[in-house]
Amino acid sequence: MRKAFGPLVVVGAALFVAAPYFIAQAPYESTMGLIQKIMYYHVPSWIAQYCAITVCGVASAIYLFKSHPVADRYAVSAAELVVLFGLMGLITGPLWARKAWGVWWQWDVRLTSALLMELIFVAYLLVRQYGGPGSEKLASATALFGTATGPFVYKSVDIWRTVHPKTTVVPTLPSSLGAPLALTSAAFVLLFVVLLTLRVNLAERQAALDEMYLALED
């Protein structure tokens, strides 16, 4: 990943530069108008978050069973990004909803399950912060449970929702809207990869520092 980092940054940045043009070009969605353009940042942030959740879950499982320190570095880096992208989605969502639905918050399945995921990964970071020595293992169990139950969370909230009155549903998108969305999605995924690489690099430097302290004691 390290070697590909430079090109990744360039491609990602190019996508982000191109994005505004395509977003502006895209026609207005018929019922919501301008506000619908939040979608071009909102949906990709969820896609990036799902990537982060997957990385964190897999890395945590590897760390839990193999105790490989590299896996832990990926897990903690991905967990921070889950929280970051989740926050982006959770802020842009209500802004969209306020205009489109007339309320800030709806107990919609996506909103609710996203909020739960955000809570789980904030809990992950809290455990690492305050759990004392050995908390990496405990945190990895949290991530594992969070990731594994994700689909169930979604399903159960979905059913919970359908028992209640339905809200406005985003209609299926024509391709004129889809193309810019694909572009920003790719840009966000690249942003995720770039941030993950930077954060893992930080974790490696921290580990190297710890190593130096240990060597000093030896």
């Binding site: 809990a123 455990v127 405990l138 949290t142």
Partner: peptide, 16 residues
């Protein structure tokens, strides 16, 4: 065996 276990238990348990 963790520190601040009293507060961490509900923090972990409820979201999951």
């Amino acid at each position: 065996r963790a520190r601040s276990r009293d507060v961490l238990l509900p923090i972990l348990l409820y979201p999951i």
